[in-house]
């Protein structure tokens, strides 16, 4: 009876996820195995094309740079915020939550105003006399990376504040009273304890930037195509659904592998569990 109740109550949600996520996504992936030209032909085609290899490689590169920069800046910021007096900490947390709740489109659009031909950046550089006429800042890999860091840094800061707050203060006091300098305490006590949390934050930012669409679309255009924008182009512009499905399948494999491997590693590295 109780067993039945559990199943009954969870069945609508289970059914929704099965019918509208598992089956459609499985269908998308299975298309790539039954396409004409033999098994794995769509994949052979994908990796044979220098252009498509570049798109995949660029996506990796952009996601990796975004992750590393957000991690470093996020950790420094989160460290300072977590040591602030309570009222200031609340203000700083609210200032990080606000951009996070503001949409990706709005926040990417801000960088169009900043990096455009007559944008804030070009005007400032001209005013400073560093350049004579506007330079092309948009539709470069750098513009995509800057905007992605901007999008994901609040998430990283909030995750890492949580991680740092979970470290018992006693440990830091013990380290200090035993004569360790703040730097040494940070490197030898804080960092090892924070590593699993850092990995969680890194995985979140890496997977989100790897699969992003709006930011590379607005700031990279067709010149800096990433997997997300490429999938959309194949599906809605050239209507090559087999190719789009192949891109989708590669994205799923990359994301699932990253999440599975990294959560394993994070669990293993947890010094509190040992």
């Amino acid at each position: 009876m109780k067993r039945l109740a559990g199943w009954m109550l969870s069945s609508p949600a289970t059914l929704a996820v099965s019918l509208f996520l598992i089956i459609p996504v499985a269908a998308t992936i299975s298309v790539t195995f039954t396409a004409p030209g033999g098994l794995l032909a769509p994949y052979a085609e994908f990796f044979d094309s220098a252009f498509q290899r570049t798109v995949l490689w660029r996506t990796f590169e952009v996601a990796a740079i975004t992750t590393v920069v957000s991690l470093v800046l996020g950790l420094m910021t989160a460290y300072v915020v977590s040591r602030c007096p309570p009222w200031m900490k609340s203000v700083l947390i609210i200032l990080a939550v606000f951009p996070l709740l503001t949409g990706v489109v709005v926040r990417s659009f801000a960088w169009l105003i900043i990096l455009g031909r007559n944008g804030v950046m070009n005007n400032t550089l001209e005013w400073l006399g560093l350049i004579e006429r506007p330079i092309a800042l948009l539709y470069t890999q750098t513009s995509v990376v800057i905007a992605l860091i901007y999008i994901f840094i609040p998430l990283m800061i909030l995750v890492l504040i949580g991680v740092l707050e979970n470290i018992p203060d006693d440990l830091l006091q013990a380290s200090a009273s035993l004569g360790a300098s703040p730097t040494r305490t940070f490197v030898q006590v804080v960092l090892p304890l924070a590593t699993p949390g850092l990995i969680v934050g890194a995985v979140l930012v890496f997977t989100a930037s790897f699969t992003s669409y709006a930011t590379p679309h607005l700031l990279g255009g067709t010149r800096q195509m990433m997997m997300g924008t490429f999938l959309h182009q194949r599906a809605m512009v050239t209507f090559d659904w087999v190719s789009a499905s192949t891109v989708a399948a590669i994205m799923v494999v990359v994301i699932m592998t990253t999440v599975l491997v990294m959560t394993r590693i994070a669990k293993r590295l947890n010094p509190m569990a040992a």
């Binding site: 509208f20 996520l21 089956i23 459609p24 996504v25 269908a27 998308t28 997977t207 790897f210 699969t211 669409y213 997300g228 999938l231 959309h232 599906a235 659904w241 789009a244 499905s245 989708a248 994205m251 799923v252 994301i255 699932m256 999440v259």
Partner: peptide, 15 residues
């Protein structure tokens, strides 16, 4: 976990 853009595309195809 599954990339949103993959969910969107799959819903277009199947549903």
């Amino acid at each position: 976990l599954v990339p949103e853009i993959v969910i969107g595309f799959s819903l277009l195809r199947s549903v």
